[in-house]
Design a protein around this nucleic acid. Structure first.
Ligand SMILES: [Mn+2]
Ligand SMILES: [Mn+2]
Ligand SMILES: [Mn+2]
Ligand SMILES: [Mn+2]
Lengths: 221, 221
DNA sequence: AAAAATATTTAGATTTGCCTAAAAATAAAT
DNA sequence: ATTTATTTTTAGGCAAATCTAAATATTTTT
């Protein structure tokens, strides 16, 4: 039996480990989960007892295979529920995360398989993040940040780095949704802001902050 | 803030109060929730502190208006999720209760309103139980048990008294689903079992136990 | 290499929700 | 009206998950 709190910790560890290539620190977990390092230490002991993480005091943690599986399944459930909320219930992409945080913990035989089928086996969630399949596998996409796009290159928006409501709402308002195509016309030296042309010929100015949080795939034009 | 455990207690009290017309006893709650009377006493104190129930020691409890509202909303959420699981995900009516017990606790603005709309505002759940609307209101149906039907009368199946998987599976297997029409041909004096004719002309024998757990509305033929 | 800063763990409490066993109140039976 | 049986509450404890404050380990700086 794995509690909801334990599941959440495993997911947090998984997400941190995805970015950094070393053992995950107590502090990093505490920051991401908005709790105290003391609480994290406490939980790490429990997760270690259950062989879900490899834990050496003061040396950080790594997920075991069992822990990785729990985390991956949780991410799968989270992202599938997000697709449901957007595609079927009509929520916008900035409204669904907190609901999915709850729905992801619902347990029951065949629920997720049926949901997956009902949604027609989506491979990406509303934010462009990949959805692990029933075996925990997903495809890797070679996406780059808009801040790394070269002048003259065109790209399709495929995801976001930051997931805040404020950012997501801003993007939606600007028409910068998943699948939108844009061409980088110019990068301003002074503040690293950019001028882009959308597929519909509109021209937009985007700040460096936006560029550093928007993923694209380069179009082989 | 009302916890999941508190919500569950309020629902249990509501359901007991629906049947019996007096204050709800500690014991009745303990039996329904499969816990100890001591735990119930504990929780009743907490619910009383929050003004969700009117509680006099040794004299049983009643829901306050606030408590009734929480219970009704919880029932609404439970039954809407059951409709979703059956209508959209293809579960059978004997598989959905435990999942709905979890889904009913998911909190979030407009989730249930959107789910209700997505399901096209169903008025009954897969077991024939009425779904409260957004204002907590539902229509009362004058249904009677098959054990109270008179010989020669015809009725439409509209609900079940017992909700066990075993019973629900048995009914499905026999074709005794919601909306099925049957005519009472004969009641056997010896054991109160009955012979019925279904709309498709099949004849079935049903035990007294089945009769006491199957609700119908009489057809004005 | 010692001192200072930072990160992590431990100790001790708290809250929620549950348990068993014992005590107290109420209801039923004689 | 007592006695007996049943119901309900209280007392004391436990596990999960969290917190603050204090102690300890590690890393960085001087
Ligand atoms: Mn999310
Ligand atoms: Mn997402
Ligand atoms: Mn149910
Ligand atoms: Mn139901």
């Amino acid at each position: 039996m794995i509690s909801q709190a334990e599941e959440n910790y495993l997911k947090a560890i998984f997400k941190i480990a995805e970015k950094e290539n070393r053992a995950v620190s107590t502090n990093a977990i505490a920051v991401l989960m908005q709790t105290t390092p003391a609480s994290v230490s406490d939980m790490l002991r429990r997760l270690s007892d259950k062989n879900l993480i490899a834990y050496e005091k003061y040396r950080g943690v790594q997920l075991t295979e069992a822990g990785k599986q729990v985390a991956t399944e949780l991410i799968r459930r989270h992202r599938l529920w997000e697709v449901f909320l957007v595609e079927k219930l009509g929520f916008s992409w900035d409204e669904v995360h907190d609901l999915a945080e709850q729905l992801e913990h619902v347990q029951g035989p065949s629920l997720i398989e049926r949901l997956d089928a009902f949604l027609d086996y989506p491979r990406y969630d509303p934010h462009g993040d990949p959805i692990p399949d029933a075996d925990g596998l997903w495809v890797f996409r070679a996406q780059i940040l808009l801040s790394d796009l070269k002048t003259g290159q065109r790209g399709v928006i495929t995801g976001v780095q930051e997931h805040s409501s404020a950012f997501l709402q801003y993007l939606a308002q600007m028409g910068l949704t998943l699948g939108a195509v844009l061409e980088l016309l110019e990068r301003i030296d002074y503040d690293q802001s950019v001028r882009v042309r959308m597929y519909d010929t509109r021209e937009l100015m985007l700040s460096e902050k936006v560029c550093k949080n928007l993923f694209l795939m380069i179009e082989n034009a």
